[in-house]
Structures are given as C-alpha cells and as structure tokens.
Simulated scan of single mutants.
Amino acid sequence: MRPRNIIRAIESARDGLRRSERLVADYILANRREVIHMRIVDLAQEAHVSEPTVVRFCRAVGCDGFQNFKLTLAQHIAHSPEYAAFSFTDDDSARQYTFTVFDATMEALKKVRDSIEVDAVEKAVDLLANARRVELYGFGASAAVASDAQHNFFRLQISASVYSDPHMQAMSAMSLHSDDVVVAISQSGRTRSLLDAIKLAQKSGATVIALAPSGSPVADASDLPIYIDVDLDEGNYTPLPSRLAHMTVLDILAVGIANTKKGLREHLATIEAGLQALRLDTRS
C-alpha cells in the first residue's frame, strides 16, 4: 500500500491554517528532504515559530505529532522519486534528451497519480457508463487526446464523438440533452472557445466533465472537474508529458467503465477474436 501523500495534505490544508502554521507549511514544502532530519526545535527556529505551533501544524495535517509527521514525510519521499523538469538545449545529445523526456513524463504521471481525486473518477465513470451520448471537446494536442479516448470508448460500446472545431462544438452542444455527457479536455484550462461550448452544453442540460488544471476557468465552469496539474513552460515540446497525463486519466475512466458495464468482457473478447483475422500469423 502506497504511503499517504503528506505533501498533498499540506497543500490542501494550507489555506485553512493559522498564519504561524502556514509558515511551517511553507518551510516544509520548500525543504521537505531536510525536514526529515530535523528536531522539532530546529524546524521551529527555521520557520520562525514556536514548538507548540509545529505540533499544532502536524495535527492539522492528520499526524499525531512531530515524530509521526516526520515518519509519514520520509515514507512519502522514499516512494516518490523526483525527476528533473522537462528542459533541454540545442547541445543535448540523443541520450540526454531521451532520458529527459522519459523522466519528465514519469514525473508528470506520478504527480497526477498522487493528486487525483478518486471520488471524481468514480462519479465520472458512472456518468459516462450511463450516458446516451458522449461528446469529447478539445483543441490542438487535446484533440489528439480526445480521439484516443473515442477509440477506447467505442470498444466499450459507448457512442462517442470528437469535435475540435469551435463551430462543430457549438452545434454539438446545442443538440445535447440531460442524459448526455461532454468531456472537455484542456491542458491550459483557459481556451475561450471551449468555455463557450461548455456553457452551451450546460444550457442544453448536458453534464460537463472537465480534464483541466485546478483553479482554471475550464475546471471551474464544468459540473465535474478532474484536476490534472502538470507544470508547463514555454518550450516547444512541453505538451508531451501533459498530453500523456490526460490520456492516462482517460484510460482510467475506460477501465472503470469496463468494470461497471455488464457483458463488456465478452464483447471485448469477441472483438479481439475478430481482429486476429487481420493480423499476420507468426506461428509458422
């Protein structure tokens, strides 16, 4: 069983802490590896607070005390290797940028895994499994993610369509009903045309699931946001880890649907058997 994500707990609790406790939280978030070797008096001194404040902070994030907090933090760090951010230069060798892409992708997937809200996943699976129609909206790299999801949903006997043109999204949204679901996919969470389509879909009575960064306009406008927070910079290739994180979450939803809908295993087995005839026989 993976240790509790104490860093996520600190980030979630931070805004509700007292000012002095937030000083402890901020110091720990910036120096998490150093903290596991500190005494309580050391942390109190570095964060400019009293020792009782440190104890109150530990209890506020679900720990019995400072020693229990350090143990939880150490376990989390041990199971959460950190990789370098996705950046490269024109002088990087093939070996360097190969490992950079792998490391950045693993870091992005790990971060989303540790922060994803399982309750939102369960609600999304239920909505998608029982929808009359599923419409997937996305632009650019998100449109490619939507097309991949459409392929998976088609195999699961879900009627799904992909629209990456704002006019087609608008027409789709205006034709929906209360038993239809829209999956709005956005890596930035700030696409104006996508926000317009979300409003039209909701006006038609459809439910909107969003895959977007937390706190973004797209996430806030949806009925059911699934937060995907991946650090992005201005590099030409930075959508790579983000796109794969979105695809992984959609794969999770597909697995949930497969486990929910009755008779799907037999259906998928039939499809696989039928596809064998299209493949080369390598046994001879």
Rank of each mutant, 00 (worst) to 15 (best):
residue 106 M to E: 15
residue 82 E to C: 12
residue 95 R to C: 03
residue 91 D to S: 07
residue 91 D to Q: 10
residue 65 G to Q: 08
residue 96 Q to C: 04
residue 105 T to A: 03
residue 68 N to V: 13
residue 96 Q to I: 07
residue 106 M to F: 14
residue 71 L to V: 11
residue 60 A to Q: 15
residue 92 D to S: 06
residue 92 D to W: 06
residue 111 K to I: 09
residue 106 M to W: 11
residue 94 A to K: 04
residue 81 P to K: 09
residue 81 P to F: 05
residue 72 T to P: 09
residue 96 Q to H: 12
residue 60 A to L: 11
residue 106 M to L: 15
residue 66 F to G: 02
residue 89 T to S: 10
residue 79 H to S: 10
residue 95 R to V: 11
residue 94 A to G: 14
residue 84 A to S: 13
residue 60 A to W: 14
residue 104 A to Q: 03
residue 103 D to V: 01
residue 96 Q to S: 09
residue 82 E to Y: 14
residue 86 F to A: 02
residue 77 I to A: 00
residue 109 L to H: 05
residue 61 V to Q: 01
residue 74 A to F: 05
residue 92 D to R: 06
residue 99 F to I: 08
residue 105 T to K: 05
residue 110 K to N: 05
residue 79 H to K: 15
residue 96 Q to P: 02
residue 105 T to S: 04
residue 66 F to D: 00
residue 99 F to S: 04
residue 60 A to C: 13
residue 62 G to P: 04
residue 73 L to G: 01
residue 99 F to C: 07
residue 96 Q to K: 10
residue 84 A to L: 08
residue 83 Y to T: 00
residue 79 H to C: 09
residue 88 F to A: 02
residue 83 Y to Q: 00
residue 103 D to M: 00
residue 106 M to C: 14
residue 78 A to Y: 11
residue 70 K to P: 05
residue 100 T to Q: 03
residue 60 A to T: 12
residue 73 L to M: 11
residue 67 Q to T: 15
residue 73 L to K: 03
residue 81 P to I: 06
residue 78 A to F: 07
residue 86 F to S: 02
residue 83 Y to G: 02
residue 93 S to N: 09
residue 84 A to Y: 12
residue 71 L to H: 10
residue 76 H to M: 12
